[in-house]
């Protein structure tokens, strides 16, 4: 289960909405081993694409150095889908390299008729996707 504060939840949705129709991406860092997402770090989508995202490689190095220095880890790795549902695509699965992270997908496409945004969380380990409950506190 992913437990996330309302403020962080809203910050991710706001980022996804702001970058629409391009995909937005970023992480929420937390103390290593805590599984608590605490610090929102929006990242630049170097691909600037409606169907693809990639952290800029220089920013990526800076991010991981910073996390290391602060004894943090990427608790949440998120991105948006802007025309499809908030479910990991084949691309998402093949590039998922953090088995300990919660992969959050935010959809800015109203594909389910259930409301303006989907906010869903997954584990992606060895190519296997498992959806998990999201608890907003």
């Amino acid at each position: 289960m992913l437990t996330i504060t309302q403020a962080l939840h809203d910050a991710l949705v706001a980022h996804a909405r702001a970058d629409h129709p391009d995909e937005a991406c970023g992480v929420i860092a937390g103390p290593a081993g805590s599984d608590r997402p605490e610090r929102h770090i929006p990242m630049l989508n170097a691909a600037r694409s409606p169907t693809f995202y990639e952290f800029d490689s220089t920013d990526l190095l800076k991010l991981y150095r910073e996390l290391d220095d602060r004894d943090e880890e990427p608790v949440v790795i998120y991105h948006s889908h802007t025309a499809t549902e908030a479910y990991p695509s084949r691309t998402d699965i093949s590039y998922a390299n953090e088995p300990g992270a919660h992969y959050v997908l935010v959809s800015t496409a109203d594909t389910d008729g259930a409301g303006p945004f989907q906010f869903r969380s997954f584990r992606i380990v060895d190519g296997e996707v498992t959806e998990e409950e999201v608890s907003v506190v």
Partner: peptide, 24 residues
């Protein structure tokens, strides 16, 4: 330093016709 890219994305079909954007 070795770091796998953090990447992904829908990568698939464009938005299907008939989805009402205004409802968002």
């Amino acid at each position: 330093t070795i770091l796998p890219a953090v990447a992904g994305g829908a990568g698939a079909q464009p938005r299907p016709a008939g989805v009402v954007a205004g409802r968002r």
